[in-house]
């Protein structure tokens, strides 16, 4: 019953029409938007990942909210390092009426790691964008209070970037003595 399936490309015949309609209505009119369908542990439900350009980012999310994806769940950032564009920012929304989940993501390059803020669409994006700024170093212009949230204010660097080390220190065995 936990039928997990690998990710498959969106196929209109594989899912009921209403689900695709809702996602299709969100990206309708946005060039370059692609949809990927993901299976979940629940065999009955899938979620769709929509990739959009950073210019359409706020518009698509606002449109998704108006289309029924009105519950904010999550906002994440990923550092793909060797790939270009390097950073991925995604927002996870659900439509409780239609029991649908959508992840809208965008990619930004290293030299311009700025994504317009979503706090004007969902107030809840506040802490999540601060976390993405703190750990990955994405700039969210328009955010009312873009400061570090998890790390101390005086911290330098963004630890979840791939070029940032784990920061492990050698384990010291203090009680023993070593003969060299």
């Amino acid at each position: 019953m936990t039928g997990e399936m690998p990710t498959v490309e969106s196929d209109s015949s594989a899912v009921p029409g209403t689900e695709n309609d809702l996602v299709a209505s969100v990206i309708d009119g946005f060039d370059g938007a692609t949809v990927t369908e993901h299976a979940t542990a629940s065999s009955a439900t899938v979620y769709h990942q929509v990739s959009v350009s950073v210019d359409d980012w706020v518009s698509v999310v606002r449109k998704a909210k108006n289309a029924g994806f009105d519950a904010f769940v999550d906002l994440y950032a990923v550092d793909h390092f060797a790939q270009a564009p390097r950073y991925e920012v995604g927002v996870n929304l659900i439509s409780m009426e239609n029991n649908q989940r959508i992840i809208i993501s965008t990619r930004v390059p290293y030299d311009d790691a700025t994504v317009p803020t979503l706090t004007g669409v969902f107030v809840g994006a506040n802490f999540y964008e601060r976390e993405a700024y703190d750990l990955i170093g994405i700039d969210f212009p328009g955010h009312p209070d873009l400061t570090r949230i998890l790390l101390p204010d005086e911290w330098v660097g963004h630890p979840l970037r791939k070029d940032s080390s784990v920061g492990a220190i050698p384990v010291q065995f203090k009680a023993g003595s070593v003969d060299l």
């Binding site: 009105d70 519950a71 904010f72 769940v73 999550d74 409780m96 969902f122 107030v123 809840g124 999540y128």
Partner: peptide, 8 residues
């Protein structure tokens, strides 16, 4: 507000 803030 729950939906706006991600409260579940």
């Amino acid at each position: 507000e729950c939906k706006e803030y991600g409260v579940t």
